[in-house]
Design a protein around this nucleic acid. Structure first.
Lengths: 145, 145
DNA sequence: ATCCTAATCAAGACTTTGTCTAAGTCAATA
DNA sequence: TATTGACTTAGACAAAGTCTTGATTAGGAT
């Protein structure tokens, strides 16, 4: 039983109707190589397996997966949103300011704790995202030469 | 001498040609009430003073102010980018997950320090942004009732 | 196995946000 | 005040995402 069938089980358990389109989108996201795809990239990979899948369906399915908490959505650059299947383990992101590549990173301590009570202005805190930025080794070699 | 004329002085010192359009955009950003406007909102407020100002000029000017380090650009929701005139004092953002309103917050300690050396994967770290999310008091009253 | 129906999907128009181009205008210097 | 290259305008264009409408289908009921 791999992570994939786990995911489909969980979704079915929540009353998800399991269509070919949804299966393919879930497969693309959960396909081993842990990358951070845009909706368009997900659509491209899904269409390789199911050519008639529409963009709208990919957007809908990604949105549902995010609502269900199975996938994280974030935007590293203000352009296309990225979808991160690694929603089960808390992590932050490290983005290359040269090429835009993204890595998951794990930080020390609880980032929520960094916000003093006096600063939270009566908000009911729900979470925090950290985005580290820097030049990746490849870009350092090219640009920083 | 207010912050505004400071800003215009600095820009002139850097060889900026001081046009009516740029002056108005700087005025809008630096107009006391510290908010986080979108480019479109900046354009709307600028056009109230200088009706013929074009969208392209507002985008260009905002981009220049960001490059010069006078204004911060960030995206809280993956939609329109926001422009933050408070670039001189390090801070993070707290975003209401109900209404989307944004506050500046100041955290304890240096957020860069949270990333262990072993996690930085050879990247030359440049910075980090934190986005806290939660329900603001107004939205708690309405939705959380 | 077949039927039924609400849930889902496809196609493409539409919206939002931002960039680019070509031609006209103007701030700063001489 | 004449010049000139930087700046601006208007609108075309592009990317990312949403919405509408009618067709299709998964899964339960028969």
């Amino acid at each position: 039983m791999n992570a994939m069938s786990d995911l489909l089980e969980r979704l079915r358990g929540r009353g998800w109707r399991l269509t070919a389109q949804r299966r393919v989108v879930a497969e693309v996201l959960d396909s081993g190589e842990h990358v951070h795809l845009t909706a368009d990239e997900v659509h491209g990979r899904a269409a390789a397996r199911l050519p008639e899948i529409s963009r709208a369906t990919v957007y809908n399915t990604l949105g549902e997966l995010v609502s269900l908490g199975e996938v994280l959505e974030f935007s590293a650059d203000g352009r296309a949103k990225r979808y991160d299947p690694n929603a089960r383990h808390a992590h932050q992101h490290l983005v290359c300011s040269g090429c835009g590549s993204i890595r998951d990173v794990h930080i020390a301590g609880d980032p929520m704790g960094a916000l003093p009570e006096s600063e939270s202005a009566g908000y009911a805190l729900e979470g925090v995202e950290m985005t580290f930025r820097g030049l990746c080794p490849d870009c350092r070699a090219k640009r920083g030469a």
